[in-house]
């Protein structure tokens, strides 16, 4: 499966480069790492990685299914100038609290540089006062898509 995946990327990379050269839209590579961390010890109890390509303005949606909560996160990248990008993070979370189903929606934005690591906590961060529980953390790195062969790991 892995070989197929990389062969696939290699196959489509000329097309993506073509898209980059021949349209106004810059192609971006998103490296996404979802981590569930213990609030007090910071131990990572669950870790999932994904990689995705997109163009400016086209959102990337993640659905996180955690059993007693569900989160949908939509990331969109916009160029500001050169390597300066704007990252828009829209999130909707559904969870159970005190026997009731709750839903919260939000939109956040941050200016970042291509290649800079950014964190998104769709459920927020546990308060300093009370660290029992877990933090759900998305680590993201957005870089401009380069014309390089995909490296096998």
């Amino acid at each position: 499966m892995r070989k197929l995946f990389f062969a696939f990327c290699f196959f489509i990379s000329p097309l993506l480069i073509f898209a980059q050269e021949n349209s106004d839209s810059q192609v971006y590579n998103m490296d996404i790492d979802l981590m569930i961390q213990d609030g007090s010890s910071a131990q990572v109890v669950s870790d999932h990685k994904a990689q995705h390509q997109t163009v400016s303005g086209r959102p990337v949606t993640l659905n996180i299914n955690g059993g007693n909560f569900k989160a949908a996160v939509r990331f969109t990248v916009y160029p500001i100038q050169a390597d300066n990008l704007l990252l828009l993070a829209q999130s909707t979370i559904v969870f159970m609290k005190e026997g009731h189903r709750r839903m919260l929606s939000s939109a956040k934005s941050i200016p970042i540089k291509a290649g800079e690591k950014v964190l998104f906590f769709p459920m927020g961060v546990l308060n300093d006062g009370d660290k029992t529980g877990y933090n759900c953390k998305l680590e993201m790195e957005i870089s401009k898509y380069q014309n390089q062969p995909v490296v096998q790991e």
């Binding site: 009731h100 189903r101 709750r102 839903m103 919260l104 929606s105 939000s106 939109a107």
Partner: peptide, 13 residues
């Protein structure tokens, strides 16, 4: 319907 829905804050968008 069944549960409470809150808009955390009105979407800037």
């Amino acid at each position: 319907d069944t549960g409470e829905k809150q808009l955390l804050k009105k979407d800037a968008v």
